[in-house]
Design a protein around this nucleic acid. Structure first.
Length: 559
RNA sequence: AACUCCAUGGUGUAACGGUAGCACAACAGAUUUUGGUUCUGUUUGUCAAGGUUCGAAUCCUUGUGGAGUUGCCA
């Protein structure tokens, strides 16, 4: 009897297992805490899959919490798009949606408590002076001249800060920890700053706003988060996270654990750079199908399931790795191969005239909707005397092992007939305009003929008079450099000039007219394509999601 | 010559002191009415040097390489 292998767990799930078996916790609560200041990208998907995934696996829950402590950068527009993206990824926070701004009152109360205990003080140095006083990586900082201000005075000043008596930047509230601490985050970090800004939820109720460090852990504690999972750059913040938890009357003691953020080659992930791509019109918007944003990926036609699979395969570690985009594409192809319906479409058409086929005759052939799902049955495709095939499916002077059409050669037209090419018609410039072929009636439906003749190649086609005209957008990687983040000069210097190719008159099988916006299908032998939201009844528009694996093209590129 | 963290094939990830495995990629073959899918097989790896141990990717020491941190951003 074979024992099924126990799937290995990442270090975070191992910690959770220990905490559960040791009785430290009797449940698991995680949270996904985006700041509503931009669109989510695939890096966030990793965190979403981790946090919501753990909640599902452990029968716990995952909160969606907006980290909205900086009103100068945030907006409801982003709140909405973030919610949409998480739902699209297939996750549900139920009733557990929170905002850090909901805790402003409690956070303020606790700050007053810190002052009363002599653990916080109002500093009135300028930002520049505070920066200087902090010291640097090699040297300890120096105490602020206001560090030992009496409690009563601190209390009064903090109240006046809150009451709006000071301008932005005039005063801050600082924790009194240790100006010589080797960890810079512990050198009397700022807790509150003055910001006379309208907050998208609290309006003008506040003019002092808590900093991330002072907000995050306490929000976790207030929500009884057990494991607060964040990316590696917060590692140095953990001592401070714990300092607050230990020095404040919080209702629970969450634990911060850091993991490596996602990076992918041939793209950029930072909000700043993505914003620049949008603002400088290198892409059409946040949802441009070339963008690594969730909305871009969705518009590109990547299924949510593929993103989840991908996040599962890359795992969770503390190693700062760069994932190959082919790993993602493999997940996409895998999901799409199983689920996408098949159709025929010709992107770069060349006309074929079947000389021995009657002028007005039309036949309908059956074709599988999806060979991976035979239950779906068949679709009808119309065949007639004039057809379109892919220009690169014909070669006048074919190399060895070329299984497609060539003068005198015979191939199968998928689900239709065997056709032999008799004649090549060219214009004055020598460009091929038409192929004249003959079909073998004995191969109806694409069956092998009674004489046992076989062909190596099967090509796709579309009947000329039935064909649907469409725009097809072919996408390639946005950058030519493997790590555009890591180059001399600007990342923009390495933009791929050919990342978008528009084909305005592709020829589609008419069944494709019924495919709804957002649905991804397979164009046989070419790849997966999805209907773009620019699509209209008069002018269908398809995005290429990802090409099929193409071992023939691979071999050709090599030689 | 600060602190913290990290290091396993080309890429990503397992192995919890006991046979270095899996996925992707690549290559070869079989099947195929998609040069797709599927199946089979092959190539490639423990950063280095010491130490502990019967036995080390794993523990210890030192070195090397990489990342993060000097916002009143998150």
């Amino acid at each position: 009897m074979s024992v099924p292998p126990t799937p290995s767990k990442d270090f975070i799930r191992e910690i959770i297992d220990e905490d559960l078996s040791s009785g430290k916790h009797d449940g698991t609560v995680t949270r996904f805490p985006p700041e509503p200041n931009g669109y989510l990208h695939i890096g966030h998907a990793k965190s979403i899959c981790l946090n919501f995934g753990i909640a599902q696996e452990y029968g716990g829950r995952c909160h969606l919490r907006f980290d909205d402590t900086n009103p100068t950068k945030e907006d409801v527009e982003y709140v909405d798009s973030i919610k949409e993206d998480i739902q699209w990824l297939g996750f549900d926070w139920g009733d557990h949606i929170y905002f850090a701004s909901d805790y402003f009152e409690k956070l303020h109360e606790w700050a007053v408590g810190l002052i009363e205990e002599g653990k916080a003080y109002v500093d009135e140095q300028s930002a520049e002076e505070i920066r200087k006083g902090r010291g640097d990586l090699q040297n300890p900082g120096t105490d602020s001249p206001h560090r030992d201000r009496p409690v009563a005075e601190n209390l009064e000043m903090f109240q006046r800060m809150k009451d709006g008596e000071f301008g932005d930047g005039e005063k801050v509230l600082r924790a009194k920890i240790d100006m010589a601490h080797p960890n810079l985050n512990m050198r009397d970090p700022v807790l509150y700053r003055i910001l006379h800004a309208e907050h998208h939820r609290t309006g003008d109720t506040w003019c002092i706003y808590p900093m991330y460090d002072y907000t995050h852990g306490q929000s976790d504690a207030l929500e009884y988060i057990t494991h607060s999972l964040c990316t590696l750059e917060f590692e140095n913040h953990r001592p401070l996270y714990e300092w607050f938890i230990e020095n404040l009357p919080v209702p629970s003691h969450p634990r911060q654990i850091e993991f490596s953020r996602l990076s992918l080659n041939y793209t950029v992930m930072s909000k700043r750079k993505l914003l620049q791509l949008v603002e400088d019109s290198h892409v059409s918007g946040w949802d441009d199908p070339r963008m690594p944003t969730i909305s871009g990926i969705r518009r590109r036609g990547y299924p949510a399931e593929a993103i989840r699979d991908f996040c599962k395969t890359i795992g969770i570690t503390k190693f700062k790795s760069t994932n190959d985009i082919s790993l993602l594409e493999s997940s996409v192809r895998d999901v799409l191969n199983r689920g996408a319906n098949r159709y025929m479409a010709v992107l770069d058409p060349i006309k074929v005239v079947v000389t021995n086929y009657p002028e007005d005759q039309v036949e309908e052939f059956d074709a599988m909707i999806n060979p991976e799902k035979p239950d779906l049955g068949m679709r009808k495709v119309s065949f007639s005397r004039e057809l379109f095939i892919e220009r690169n499916d014909f070669l006048e002077d074919p190399p060895k092992k070329f299984f497609r059409l060539a003068p005198g050669a015979e191939v199968r037209f998928r689900c239709a007939y065997f056709l032999r090419c008799d004649d090549v018609i060219k214009d004055e410039e020598g460009k091929i305009t038409e192929l004249r072929c003959t079909y073998d009636p004995e191969t109806r439906g694409g069956e092998n003929p009674p004489d046992g003749r076989k062909v190596k190649g099967t090509i796709h086609w579309v009947s000329a008079k039935h064909a649907l005209d469409a725009e097809v957008r072919l996408y390639d990687r946005l950058f030519t450099h493997e790590s555009p983040d890591n180059v001399e000069g600007s990342f923009l210097d390495h933009l791929n000039p050919d990342s978008l190719e528009v084909i305005s008159h592709a020829k589609l099988e008419p069944n494709l007219a019924a495919v709804p916006v957002g649905k991804t299908v397979q164009f046989e032998r070419l790849g997966y394509f999805c209907v773009d939201l620019d699509s209209s009844e008069e002018k269908p528009v398809f995005n290429r999601t990802v090409a099929l694996r193409d071992s023939w093209a691979n071999a050709q590129n090599k030689s």
